[in-house]
C-alpha cells in the first residue's frame, strides 16, 4: 500500500485515525508494518503490502 492511503483508512471499530508503526518499504510501497488505532489502540497488520483491517473477531488467528 501507499502511505498516502492513510488519509482514507481508519479503524473499522471506532473510525478513528490509524498510525503506521514498524513500516517496511519497497520503493514507495509499504509492504509490512502495523496500523494502530490512535483511539482504541487496536493493531492491524499490513501483510505483504495489503492492510488487514478486518475487525478482530473476523481475523485469522483465534483469540488466545
Amino acid at each position: 500500500m501507499k502511505e498516502s492511503l492513510l488519509e482514507i483508512l481508519c479503524c473499522p471499530l471506532d473510525k478513528h485515525d490509524l498510525e503506521l508503526e514498524d513500516a517496511e518499504y519497497e520503493d514507495d510501497e509499504v509492504v509490512g508494518g502495523t496500523l494502530v488505532c490512535t483511539e482504541c489502540g487496536e493493531r492491524y497488520p499490513i501483510e505483504d503490502g495489503i492492510p488487514n483491517l478486518l475487525p478482530p473477531d473476523m481475523r485469522e488467528e483465534s483469540p488466545a
Binding site: 482514507i8 483508512l9 473499522p12 495489503i50 478486518l54
Partner: peptide, 16 residues
C-alpha cells in the same frame, strides 16, 4: 489500493 475489510464495518473515513 487493496484493503482487506468487512463490508459491515468499513475501515474507511467518513465522506472519503
Amino acid at each position: 489500493a487493496l484493503v482487506q475489510g468487512d463490508a459491515a464495518a468499513l475501515p474507511l473515513a467518513d465522506d472519503s
